[in-house]
Amino acid sequence: MNAQLERVGNSLSETKNEYFFVTRNRDAVKKGNIIEKELTINGKNIKNYEIQLPAIIGGGFKNIVPMLEYKRILSKWLKENVNKYDVIHAIDYDVGSVAINICEKYNKKLVYHIADFYADSRLSIPILAKKILRKKEYNIINRASVTIICSEDRLKQIEGSQPKKIIVVHNTPARKQTVTKKDIKLNEKDNLLLTYVGGLEKKRFIDKVIPAVKEDTNYKLFLAGSLGDARESFNDIDEIENVTYLGKLPYEKALELYENTDIMFAIYDPNHPNHQYSAANKVYEAMLMGKAIIVAANTGMDKIVKEENMGYIIDFNQQNFSELLTHISKNREELYEKSLNAARAYKKYSWEEMKNRLVSLYEELN
């Protein structure tokens, strides 16, 4: 289950509201069908209407036609089922741009949840188109009942809009922290185990991590997630002794993978405008699991990592990464301390606090 979706569902399960999900399956084979499924959240089975519409991860302009088709299908479904809901919790622009008009037409409320600010999330968008998209997204923010952003830094990103109400909900996993000091352990001294689960794209350093790790068999790398534009790096992955690709994993399995790693990484390209305000799930997952993390400088996440002394900050290049791995391998006690600091930082961003913010929001909407 998508982590963002789980956070919303977990919070709603704490209220008296009835709810369901409308999602999209980007790995679908057939186009356009809507399959009724069930998701289990907090022991409850929740209806999930899943739109079957494939897309290419990191596909850019190749996804324009599928995106327009998705918006058409979603709009039609929301209109035909308008009596099933009073509020739409829309995550990101594609959904929000459809939902805002329907909410106003049928007197519904819109919670607009910005995971990625659209105009800054795609490098391939021309400058004029970015200006138009920024204005359109500001328009959704201004008209929505509530806007949710994932960090205080994002207030700067949406300067120029006039939200009616805004709350910050950090991307903390919907889990209670159970890690204690005695749980924080590292693997064998001569080995360094790294793990990443997520979109396998060049803008997330994946094409640089693999060649850096395979140079030294004392390093072991586990990767999982959907193949994006870094797929060429996976052509001979089975032949690399110390790199393992596990395909797509359920979220629980991803957390289990992190539990057994020495260090995590979320190295995003700082030249990507949206990454300058990034608040990757992985930073909060590192806190939850008590793991140090590597991030790139000037990507939003570096502020938290530096403030909490919970990891390492590098430039977005392979040499800097390779040098850091050598340093970490020779400084295991330092790695342990940073892992411990990650666990301690969790209190500031705990799921209990984030959940309470969402629950209070839903109660106010009632």
Rank of each mutant, 00 (worst) to 15 (best):
L155Q: 12
K165S: 05
V146R: 03
N139D: 15
T195V: 09
I184Q: 08
Y196M: 10
D153K: 15
K189D: 03
K176D: 06
I141H: 10
D190P: 01
P163K: 07
V197I: 07
R154D: 06
E137T: 07
K156S: 14
T147S: 15
L133K: 03
N142I: 05
E159A: 12
K176S: 09
R143W: 05
R154K: 11
L155Y: 15
G199A: 15
R134P: 01
L200D: 07
N171T: 04
K135N: 10
Y196F: 15
D183W: 03
E152M: 13
R134Q: 12
I149K: 10
I141Q: 08
K156G: 07
V169I: 15
N142Y: 10
S151D: 13
T172N: 10
D190I: 01
V197N: 00
E188M: 01
K135A: 10
Q157Y: 00
K181Q: 15
R204W: 08
K176W: 00
K156E: 12
D153N: 11
G160Q: 03
K156Q: 10
Q157W: 06
L200E: 02
I148K: 01
N191T: 14
F205R: 07
L133W: 04
K164Q: 15
R204P: 07
I132P: 10
T172R: 06
L200Q: 12
K185A: 04
S161T: 04
L186H: 03
V179G: 07
N139K: 15
L192H: 06
P173E: 02
N171K: 08
N171Q: 11
A144G: 12
P173S: 06
R204E: 09
N142E: 13
K182N: 13
A174L: 09
R143Y: 05
V179N: 04
K182W: 03
E201T: 14
N187A: 03
C150H: 11
I206S: 00
S161I: 07
K131N: 14
K181G: 06
F205C: 07
L194E: 03
K136Q: 14
I184S: 01
T180D: 00
K136D: 07
N142Q: 09
E137S: 13
